[in-house]
Amino acid sequence: MNLQLFEIKKSFGNKKVLRDCSFTFEKGKIYGLLGRNGAGKTTLFNCLTDEVAPDSGKAEICEANGNCHALMADEVGYVFSTPILPDFLTGYEFIKFFMDINERKIDPHKTIDDYFDMVKINAEDRHRLIKGYSHGMKNKVQMLCFMIVRPPVILLDEPLTSFDVVVALEIKQLLREIKHDHIIIFSTHILQLATDLCDEIVVLSDGRLQQIDHTMLQSKDFEAQIIELLKDEAAYD
């Protein structure tokens, strides 16, 4: 299974944020989407989830048998950099509600507590109001949502920057364990995080996507080459 992007373009007024985003993302890999702050990474994610309509272009899911169809919103799990959750519910209440409305998609053999165990949220915290959760805990709850419905495409917009060292390592390991069943695109502006977690690096520069030769990752000049590629990038609001 592949996610194929064809000439996705998006402008805001006179600012051309996405000029021509064409790329093929493969199932079973974690892709690091690398770019400077304001390069358009979140805009691209929003176009893929129907949060923002692209000016032109399209995204398709293509199966191994060659059949392709337009990417649908319910085929994408999106972990926002700023979590959007109902603060008036407890974590347990929200996950139960989420499982109830997605009953047809869930694994019937897993319980709510099984999912909380996967992201290591303590038993006492599960019954606290989300309003009192830390930013990192809220991001964990976001991640639970895509782990429950198992969408083919998972987009992560800077989610690890809010975690402490131990939790970040746990989430990295979790992503490595589930990547074989998904297309995972991890947006970040932190080079070390991308090279540590991701199988492939894709740079968003000047509104276009460019894959970095995998052999470059072990090169002593890798960082210098990335800086050269991005240094003239104009940031967009």
Score class of each variant (00 low, 15 high):
M1H: 13
A194W: 03
D181K: 13
M143F: 01
Q142C: 15
C145S: 07
T90Q: 05
E177Y: 00
G91N: 10
N2P: 00
L155Y: 07
S162C: 08
I84V: 15
M118A: 09
M137C: 04
N122G: 03
H180N: 14
K179F: 04
L34S: 05
D107M: 07
D181Q: 14
Q210T: 14
F94Q: 02
K10Y: 11
K220P: 10
D74C: 05
N2C: 03
H135A: 13
R36S: 14
T111C: 03
C62D: 00
A123N: 09
M99A: 10
M216K: 09
A64W: 00
H127F: 07
L229D: 00
A70W: 01
R208E: 15
F97H: 10
G13Y: 08
R128N: 13
A59C: 08
L209W: 06
L230R: 03
L160D: 15
L217T: 05
L48A: 11
V166W: 01
E51V: 11
C198H: 09
I61Y: 12
H135L: 13
F12Y: 15
F146Q: 04
Y31T: 08
F88D: 13
I190K: 02
E170S: 07
A70Q: 10
N14I: 04
Q210L: 12
E75W: 09
L230W: 05
I148R: 02
E75V: 08
D196E: 15
P86D: 10
P83S: 11
T215F: 02
T161F: 00
F116A: 06
P86S: 10
I154K: 01
K10W: 10
Y115A: 04
N46Y: 14
D196S: 12
L197F: 09
H127V: 10
L85I: 04
S134C: 05
G77N: 03
D164Y: 08
L209G: 05
K179E: 09
E103T: 11
I112E: 07
K231R: 14
M137V: 08
D117T: 12
H127Q: 09
P159A: 08
Q211I: 03
D196G: 00
F146H: 10
L229S: 06
P86W: 09
Q218V: 01
M118Q: 13
C62P: 00
K96R: 13
V149N: 02
Q4N: 14
D107A: 08
L174C: 06
L193F: 00
I112S: 03
Y92F: 11
F45Y: 14
E63C: 07
E223T: 14
F94K: 01
E233M: 04
N2E: 14
V17P: 06
A168T: 09
I178Q: 06
A73G: 00
T24W: 00
E103Y: 12
A53T: 12
V141G: 01
C198P: 08
V17S: 05
Q4V: 15
M216V: 01
T43Y: 08
D113Q: 06
G28M: 09
L156H: 02
D157M: 04
Y115P: 05
L156R: 02
S205G: 12
D114A: 07
